[in-house]
């Protein structure tokens, strides 16, 4: 045995001291999200022997990072305009609570598609790709990003051919609802894409953005949480567990606090 840092006993063999002294640039979260990639590219974050005391490395578990405000990262300008219009149909604005567009739901979907989710990172994507039964789950070779791209392109063409060259975002409210109801029922078909599946996914992703922490781009200023009465990222209700049928009085907090506390909080 040899003495390691902080009195840790590092045993002979594959202990490789550097492992627990990982530079914060190679963070656990990236490692977890891309295990396979990192397996093929030697990384300083690897196996370590743990003995004597519990290991602790600052930020080893990787704190979350807030999305960057600014231009679309995945969508083209036209795609983004369409998605914002869809978001406002799925979650229409009302006098008390903003709609999906103002709440940032399209921004949420954009950042998700630009990130690991869009590319199926971490999922099993080895061939062969065979269509199975519904109970066997999706067997798609391409990820959500490519599916959105194809469906949005086809959706744009379908709208323009139906409404004399008008894009979805330029239609009247009644026309937009009619198109989306058509997608939902299967009456409006998309060329080269499954319109019904696309709209179901879009509803799910837009609503997810509405209810996720504002740090991901949607639910701006916690509008959705305020609407439903969810207090957010709190962790202690000991004083409230026995107070039955009383409304919890405090407004929500997000992981980055509250909008009025920080200039950039969303």
């Amino acid at each position: 045995m040899i003495a390691g840092p902080h009195g840790t006993e590092l045993q002979e063999g594959p202990s490789m001291v550097e492992n627990k002294v990982t530079p914060t640039s190679v963070r656990r979260r990236e490692f977890l999200a891309g295990t396979a990639m990192l397996l093929f590219n030697a990384t300083p974050l690897g196996a370590a022997t743990i003995s004597g005391q519990l290991p602790w490395t600052p930020n080893a578990g990787s704190p979350p990072s807030r999305i960057k405000l600014g231009p679309w990262e995945f969508f083209t300008g036209e795609e983004g305009r369409t998605m914002e219009a869809i978001a406002d149909c799925v979650i229409p604005p009302d006098p008390e609570t903003p709609g999906g567009k103002e709440a940032g739901c399209a921004v949420f979907v954009d950042r998700q598609l630009a990130g690991p989710y869009g590319q199926q990172d971490g999922l099993y994507i080895r061939p062969p790709f065979v269509k199975g039964t519904k109970s066997q789950g999706s067997q798609s070779e391409v990820g959500p990003a490519q599916k959105y791209r194809e469906a949005l392109g086809s959706f744009d063409r379908a709208c323009k051919s139906r409404y004399s060259g008008k894009a979805f975002a330029d239609l009247s409210a009644a026309e937009r609802d009619a198109v989306l109801k058509g997608l939902e029922s299967g009456d409006v078909k998309l060329d080269g894409a499954d319109g019904k599946a696309f709209f179901e996914q879009a509803i799910k992703d837009i609503q997810m953005g509405f209810f996720a922490d504002p740090l991901y781009g949607g639910n701006r200023d916690m509008v959705a949480w305020k609407m439903i009465g969810y207090p957010g990222a709190r962790y202690n209700y000991l004083d409230w567990v026995n107070r039955h049928n009383e409304r919890f009085p405090l407004p929500p907090v997000g992981m980055t606090g509250r909008a009025e506390w920080t200039s950039q909080a969303r």
Partner: peptide, 14 residues
Amino acid sequence: PTDFPPGYMQDELR
């Protein structure tokens, strides 16, 4: 302390 601290563990999406 490193993987699920009270500052950001309440993250349903993640």
